[in-house]
Design a protein around this nucleic acid. Sequence first.
RNA 1: UGGGGCGUCGUCAAGCGGUAAGACACAGGGUUUUGAUCCCUGCAUUCAGAGGUUCGAAUCCUCUCGCCCCAGCCA
Length: 554
Amino acid sequence: MQEEKKGHFIETIITEDVENNKNDGQVCTRFPPEPNGFLHIGHAKSICLNYNMAEKFNGKCNLRFDDSNPAKEKQIYIDSIMANVKWLGFDVNTPLFASDYFQRLYEFAIELIKKGKAYVCSLPPDQIREYRGTLTEPGKNSPFRDRPVEENLELFDQMKQGVFDEGQHTLRAKIDMSSPNINLRDPIIYRVKKAAHPRTGTTWDIYPMYDFTHCLSDALEGITHSLCSLEFEDHRPLYDWIIEQLDTPCHPQQIEFARMNINYTVLSKRKLQRLVEEGHVDGWDDPRLHTLEGMKRRGYTPASIRNFCDVIGVSKKESRIDMGLLESCLRDDLNEQAPRVMGILNPLKVTIENYPDDQTETLDAVNHPKKEEMGKRQITFSKELYIEQTDFMEDPPKKFFRLGPGREVRLRYAYFITCKDVVKDENGKVIELICTYDPETRGGNAPDGRKVKGTIHWVNARDCVDATVNLYDRLFLDEDPEKDQDFVDNLNPDSLVTLDHCKLETSLGQAEPEKVYQFERMGYFCRDTKSLDNLVFNRTVTLRDTWAKVGGKK
RNA sequence: UGGGGCGUCGUCAAGCGGUAAGACACAGGGUUUUGAUCCCUGCAUUCAGAGGUUCGAAUCCUCUCGCCCCAGCCA
């Protein structure tokens, strides 16, 4: 009854199709990755779009690998892609492969030849290019364009038998060499390729090209709406042409949308690959990368990514989304889900001079301020503590609510403490604070109603664990890393800062991998899955920090 | 200079002839044992520009400008 919103343009199109009972009112989409690399956040947009449209209209979405180029495809990519799609929360129980259609595709090619709509061209690659013409000049017909059907059939069969080398012959669709749309200038639909295919091995010596494979695979699967990115808009006439020539089960409708771009990062396979190969990052799953593997390791949740894809919308306008929006979606989810803990990144020793030397007491701490069901945990307190270096200033400005000489603050869940003295090393660096505590403020409230401006986090120096923490920041300095420069020259030298000997509350010693915790006041962190032998945490994202923004600190 | 697309707030994005949704960001204010969260409030007399049609246009027409994609036996 409140469902009045129209949705994006693709949803509008599908809605109308269903209302008009097109395809019997059925909706079937597909996500068609080529297994030649790892998935990134841009793919997530397509995944969510396709699966969501299918779900919304009670249809289904096929995960279909577009594996028609054995020279570039590998099983590890297939495995990773499946794992990523599943991780995002979508069904991958029955993956499909274009390679499963190779025999049928071959038969379709024969049908085309018999109809006089395709021919074997024996022009070498450079000649094919020359004959194709340019953007402004028409191409010219191949001298092999009018080969008799029988000869075409025979040659094509020989191509299949493997009697020719790569590049010697191709099968081309006979369309129009003078078309202003270059894709229609007798496009190659089959080529000789002697590489072993991850799934079909060496059974084939010829492989269908994308334009031939994709539309026919869609048709064979009964896809109703074939959603792809803008650069395929020029291919649509070819998509339709092929379907129209052949006797196919249906004629899917190709609809194009703009792919995702995000500022301060790069998303193309080629660029990601270069970052990995040149060693600018740790690998495909480096937490600074927006590959799904990297984001997972960074601590991104599937829900946050799905929500992000939902929030950014779908249109035909090329856009660059603000990284801040991605982070906002992340924080939204993490704020709800992440249990709170305390951890000190840059420790500053604090000694409570009026606290009994050997005493240790236990205090209650809630795991989530708004979700009582997440329970409580107990933390210990003693004479020796650690607080964050940034929570103390020797000469604090008026608006600084934290600790300074003579100032009083609340230690979260514990007591009010007052800084009495500052201990420095020979270089004048503050290395320890001597404080007193008010025994009356146990739990954090003063019976006399006294207020403090600040509450800071802390850790018991006698009961904590040592950890290494990776602080990640955006990988590039400029919003558009490619503007006027090679993007690798724009890498942020501080995109990774590693901190050793961070002091965390003991419970974190058993932190589960892939679980994200909020280190109160510091951000969200998760155990690094690549270094489980040691206690290493990755910062997923910082907390919003108005104080830092005002210029209070770095 | 061929063809195909796109131009609405800083960034995304609704809008489909009836007088500019929402989100993020930003700026104020409130609550708060995270300077977090949460909660209010503000934030496009204007829709790339110029003409035109109309009682009325971001929405229709014309022209202009800007940006993206296409000449792989990649997808």
